[in-house]
Simulated assay, not measured.
Amino acid sequence: MVLWGAIVNACAIIAGGFLGVLIPRISDRIRRTVMQGLGLSIAVLGITMAIKPANILLTIFSLVAGGVIGELFRIEDRLQQLGDWLERTVARGSKHNARMGSVAEGFVTATLVFCIGAMAILGSLDSGLRHNHDILYTKAMLDGFLAIIFASTLGIGVVFSAVPILLYEGIISLTAALISSGLGSGDLDAVIAQITAVGGVLIIGIGINILEIKRINVGNLLPAIVIAAVGMPLYHALF
């Protein structure tokens, strides 16, 4: 089922949100340790994806060219600006209605964290192309824990963020599935293998960011996925 990963992710956010409302605030030590465990798990998942058979030269080219494009268009900065704008909008609204502002703040903050990121895109693509939901399952665990933290401080509004998450990831998954149906089995297998390898490298970067080892601008590397998908058929046609 193409949408299963997105459904599991949304359910994890709902469950985590309700738990966060019911239980006391989680201590910083517990939060840090759990996030470190999740960061390690995400890095391992990325490694298992990156080592799958693929054209290593095309993988390197995709990452380099994608990084250049991402930096030129400042994708990561623009995503951050979008988040800042939404937060300012919510803050202005909360001055007029404190209760609704509180719900809106939890909703917007959680939606931004859960939607804006490479993992949601990569996981949804993997669900649509391969019907493999491992990335979204891992993201569901991460989002579920984060939902507990957010809801314990921001309230019930966090639960409602499950709706845009389901729509966002579901649309990407369905689009990827439709595109894959138009490719031959041989071409599709090659494209999936290449996207998986490039996506695995980006997932490793997300794990490194969560572990706070070094800040990697994963958002600026997202064009590498498109280059990998388009580059593999071109490579076969030329060589």
Rank of each mutant, 00 (worst) to 15 (best):
L166G: 02
P164N: 09
I75H: 00
H96E: 14
L63A: 11
A15G: 12
I135Y: 02
L174V: 14
D84A: 15
A98R: 14
G157T: 02
Q81C: 03
P233H: 11
A237W: 14
L122K: 06
V108R: 06
I116L: 14
N220Q: 00
R88W: 06
V21G: 06
C115G: 03
I203C: 02
G106H: 04
D77N: 12
S94D: 04
P164M: 11
I165L: 15
I26G: 07
F150Q: 01
R25T: 13
M141K: 00
M119K: 03
L183E: 10
I60Y: 00
L167N: 05
P24D: 02
L202P: 00
I26Y: 08
S185H: 07
M49A: 11
V44T: 12
L166I: 00
V108M: 10
L3F: 05
G157D: 06
L188M: 14
L3T: 10
L22F: 14
F61T: 11
I203L: 05
C115L: 15
A15M: 12
R31M: 05
I60F: 09
I7V: 15
A224D: 13
I75F: 04
R88S: 14
Q81M: 12
A190G: 10
L167F: 13
A140E: 06
S41F: 05
E71D: 06
V218H: 04
L178M: 14
N55W: 12
D143G: 07
A12G: 07
M232T: 15
G46D: 03
C11V: 15
A224L: 03
F73Y: 13
I60V: 14
I179W: 12
D126C: 11
M119R: 07
G170M: 09
S161P: 06
G128H: 08
V191Y: 05
I204N: 00
I42A: 04
